[in-house]
Design a protein around this nucleic acid. Structure first.
Lengths: 213, 213
DNA sequence: GACATATGTTGACAGCGGCCACATGATCTG
DNA sequence: CAGATCATGTGGCCGCTGTCAACATATGTC
């Protein structure tokens, strides 16, 4: 997350302005969500005049889209991490698969609660630019959050924990559930819910989905 | 949704500026979501100078909060309508209760898809003002969306369709699921999903929740 | 060395939120 | 009825933003 500069300080050309602007934008998003990703402030933080950004981004939405991709990647990486921690990769039994599936959901909500600015930004992709270029929004495995969830569901099916007939569409339902809970908790009417009840709501939700799938 | 003016046109005092501003804000929200609820444009549409609004609202967020309440009410009213249509009020059997519960969810998503601007605005209550005053955000029955959902769940329990032990927390799970689906469909990565798959996703989600609760 | 291109700067404009001083009209009081 | 008082609306100003146009500087190429 550090700003990397390849040119000398004080030189006319920045040398790495594009990524420096995205870095600054990511920091702004962390502090204040998508609305805080602002061209002038990002330029300021990159140590550059307010118009230099236009050499690298068509407009503010273009920068925001890049920042959104970074945030989505951060979500994917936390999910990968928690999935790996949930059970050793060698454990390909049903128990391990279920643990990993559950970890996928908890990681999603954990990310939303610990980095609400990033979480909100991850889903604030400007309407016209929702094709994130190339590897935008992916984790280290090359999978995005939805693919990671799908992979865990596939594993549960493979381990016999879910009839294959039930598999199609399951990721949308599971995703919707955790996404909705996250939104309601960070921005929505549940934002005042005390911590124990938040945990209970998440457990209840995961139990219900697991049973219902 | 019409602007009601009690004073003569051209008179110095508007006579009903507060509600006129909210009306204008509601229209702006419909067109462009919460970010489009802007003091100056609302004032313009109310036929008043850009500063008159400050006699009725402390700041932009204050107006936005009022608009959010209106949007939440609109959601509640559509839910009430669809609940009433799902089964005659006389039908207090399990089948009727289940129909009404399902209608609660479909109405929620229907509202989000048909009035995305209002839907997003309903949940964009400014952080500091999330105490909506008095009857803000309620439907004609005096219940808000969450209470309406809770009432349907209670009815299902009463009709024997859900063990009372399973009731606590169920509204959060059900709410999260439909809310998440709505968000992913209108703003999120599912916004390009074709209509048939949208319907299928909603059916799948409601089935899963119903089974799992 | 001269030119072309990529990159960064300065200056300008409009729209926004928010404050101030002021104007106008309604209402209350004697 | 007349004057005071208060509520409400106006106009001007500031700083912030995005965006455009014109200009400046560095880099690379013949």
């Amino acid at each position: 997350m550090s700003v990397t500069t390849t040119s000398q300080p004080g030189s006319y050309h920045h040398g790495n302005l594009r990524v420096a602007l995205i870095d600054a934008g990511v920091e702004l998003a962390r502090e204040g969500g998508p609305d805080a990703v602002v061209l002038r402030e990002a330029s300021r933080r990159a140590g550059v005049s307010h118009n230099a950004a236009y050499r690298h981004f068509a407009d503010r939405d273009s920068l925001l889209a890049a920042v959104c991709g970074r945030c989505m990647s951060a979500l994917a990486r936390l999910m990968e991490k928690r999935i790996a921690q949930a059970a050793p990769a060698s454990d390909d039994g049903l128990k391990g698969a279920r643990r990993r599936l559950r970890a996928t959901g908890t990681a999603y909500v954990e990310f939303a609660l610990t980095e609400p600015g990033w979480f909100r930004t991850a889903f604030a992709v400007p309407a016209e630019l929702h094709y994130l270029a190339g590897d935008e929004g992916l984790g280290e495995s090359g999978l995005g959050p939805l693919e990671l969830l799908g992979a865990q569901l596939d594993a549960v099916v493979k381990a016999g924990g879910l009839p294959p007939k039930r598999r199609p569409g399951a990721e949308f339902t599971a995703w919707s559930a955790v996404h909705g809970l996250a939104m309601l908790l960070i921005d929505g009417p549940l934002r005042e819910l005390p911590q124990p009840e938040r945990d209970a709501a998440l457990e209840h939700l995961l139990d219900t989905i697991t049973r219902g799938l």
